[in-house]
Amino acid sequence: MTDSEPSGKPQLAATSWALLGMLSYEQELSGYDIRKWIDWSMRFYYGSPAYSQIYSELKKLEKRGYLTSRVENNGTRSRRLYKITPSGLDAATQWAREAPVEPPSLKHPALLRITLGHLSDPAALKAMLQEHIAYVDQMQSDAAKEARWAGADPSWAYAKIALDWAERYYTSERELTLKLIKDLDEAEAKFPKVGEDAKIPWPDPTFWYEIEKQVEAEDAE
């Protein structure tokens, strides 16, 4: 624990808390095991870190005394197994109970392309969104499958709730994407028509600030 870190409130990356959470069941797990568990569950709503990131965070946690590790040899194959320590379990429990929840950070590549749609065209954007729907459908199907199998063991009851939520999320994402495809037709009709050599139409910055003033005035009413 660093000198600048408040006593009893360790500052860890979100990935570290996820790893401690995986190990809070108090079983020995390898980095491969942890990655598989994350792929089965957390990837639907928190992403799946690379193996390099997992092993890097595991080393940091072990250095803090939150984990111990040992090498298990099985003939010609060996693997390092990690186990949570009492202090690691205490820290993870405190985090789960008391740490404030940060607002979710949404990074949506498809929407970024829509925002910059003036650099593309509706047909290309619709094709991109159809690919996104295919991805969403696969994630929804996978989440539903994992949620169903999570119901096989009572110790996964909370994980199942999260997976059920993930299935509903991707169902909603599909509906929102279909609406985006419809909205592109309206955007195409409204967008200023320009010739091949014309400059891409874009509001002057002074216009942005004028709109901002109007919004502020409206909010003040």
Rank of each mutant, 00 (worst) to 15 (best):
P49S: 12
A50R: 07
K83P: 00
R64Q: 10
T85Y: 14
M42Y: 15
R77D: 09
P86Q: 03
P49K: 03
R77V: 04
Y55S: 02
E57P: 00
S41H: 09
P86S: 03
T76H: 15
A50V: 04
R35V: 05
S48N: 12
R77N: 07
R79S: 12
D39V: 01
G47N: 10
W37S: 11
Y45M: 01
L67D: 11
Y32W: 08
K60W: 05
M42E: 14
N74M: 09
T85G: 10
D39L: 06
V71T: 13
K36V: 08
I38F: 13
N73G: 00
E62Y: 11
D39T: 02
Y46S: 07
W37N: 13
T68K: 12
L67E: 13
R35T: 07
S52I: 02
K36N: 12
T85A: 12
K59L: 08
Y82C: 01
Y66Q: 05
Y51V: 00
G31E: 11
Y32D: 09
R77I: 03
S69T: 05
G31H: 09
S30M: 01
F44Q: 04
S30E: 01
I84Y: 06
V71M: 07
T76F: 15
P86D: 09
T68N: 13
N74T: 07
Y66F: 15
Y45I: 00
I84Q: 03
S52A: 11
Y82E: 02
S48E: 12
L61F: 08
Y45G: 01
K63Q: 13
K83V: 04
T68W: 08
L61D: 07
P86M: 01
M42G: 15
L81I: 02
T76P: 02
A50D: 14
Y51S: 05
Y45H: 12
Y55I: 00
S52V: 02
Y46N: 05
G65A: 11
I38P: 02
N73T: 10
I54T: 05
L67A: 10
S69Y: 09
Y32Q: 07
P86H: 02
E62S: 10
W37R: 12
I38S: 04
W40H: 12
R70H: 14
S48D: 08
K63D: 15
S78Q: 15
R64D: 08
R64W: 13
G75V: 02
S41M: 02
T85H: 12
L81T: 04
W37G: 00
Y66K: 04
T76W: 14
L61R: 01
S56K: 08
N73E: 14
Y55N: 02
K63L: 08
T68P: 00
Y46G: 08
D33S: 03
